[in-house]
Every structure is written in C-alpha cells, then in structure tokens.
C-alpha cells in the first residue's frame, strides 16, 4: 500500500505548489525521498512571531495517510505547544489510538482527511494562539500566562534568528 502513500503525497505536493496557502512553502527535501518534507512557515501577523520564517521537518509514515506524520521545528522555537527539541504537539498530529495527554476526544485527532496543508495551517494558528492546556513546554506555557513581556522578547529574538539576522 506504500504506493498509495506516494501517490497521495504527490497529489498534496502538487496542490501546495499550484495553490499555496499564504506564507507557507512545503515540499520534499529531496525528490529521492518523498517521505521527508521541509516546510517553511511564516509567523502570523499581529502576533509575537510576526515576520519570522520557521523551518520544520515533516516525516511521513509509510502508511500515510492512515497514520499522521511527525513534525519538528528545525529552528529555535519557544512555544507552549512545541517540545524543547522542536517536536510539535497538536491534537491532529496524534494517531487515533494514542493519547499522550489524556484530554483529547478522538474527534480532534488524526484522520486521513487531514492533509499537510491543514496541519501547517493549524500550526500557524497555534503560533498565534497557543493552547496552554497541552504542556509540551511547561516553561513556555508558564511564561505565556504570567510574563507575556518576557515571552514576547524571547519570540522576537527567535524571529530575528530565524531570518538569519
């Protein structure tokens, strides 16, 4: 069934090229391996991540789209829903079977109708509005709640670094 995964990824890639969402570029790192993508996400306007370009790696399982891909930022990221090593923790990236946080209903989890585009758009939306129920990065969640100014200062630094400045 892996051929099906490849065809589906190709279709998604095509859609992302011909009809790209605002501020998002994504595609396979190498045409040799369609199961590893790099995505560039622009920080949403009007938020503390505004203007940054955040690269992330997407690793697809061979039974995609039955199982969700994994997503990991390859740049510095300080965010309540991103683990310190860059892994993104959002509900639609969790397989229907496992529930690490124990709070999601199955309706919020992965399903084959999700797509790379939907994943990246939801990541943009959590950049704008962190979901502080999931404590992927406890320090960041705490700072987001209690010391917004410091949080903004750090994210400003991350934005600048992401642009190579």
């Amino acid at each position: 069934m892996a051929g099906a995964a490849l065809r589906r990824l190709m279709a998604e890639y095509k859609q992302l090229v011909t009809n790209p969402p605002e501020g998002i570029v994504a595609g396979p790192i190498s045409e040799e391996n369609f199961f590893e993508w790099e995505a560039l996400i622009t920080g949403p306007e009007g938020t503390c991540f505004e203007g940054g370009i955040f690269p992330a790696k997407l690793i697809f399982p061979f039974d995609y789209p039955l199982s969700p891909p994994k997503m990991q930022f390859t740049c510095d990221m300080f965010h309540p829903n991103v683990y310190p090593d860059g892994r993104v923790c959002i509900s639609i990236l969790h397989a229907p079977g496992d529930d690490p946080m124990g709070y999601e209903t199955s309706a919020e989890r992965w399903s084959p109708v999700q797509s790379v585009e939907k994943i990246l758009l939801s990541v943009v939306s959590i950049l704008a509005e962190p979901n502080d129920e999931s404590g992927a990065n406890v320090d960041a969640a705490k700072m987001w709640r209690e010391n917004r100014e410091e949080f903004n200062r750090i994210s400003e630094k991350i934005v600048r670094k992401s642009l190579g400045l």
Partner: peptide, 21 residues
C-alpha cells in the same frame, strides 16, 4: 520541481527579511 521549490523558499526568506528590516 526541486529548483522551483528552492526558489520559492529563497523568495519567501528574502521577502520576510525585507519586511522585517
């Protein structure tokens, strides 16, 4: 496709840099 993707990435970066500056 590889070249197009690379160009699009560079373009995104440069635009973001300009905007930031």
């Amino acid at each position: 496709r590889e070249i197009t993707l690379k160009n699009r990435k560079e373009q995104l970066f440069l635009n973001a840099k300009q905007k930031y500056l």
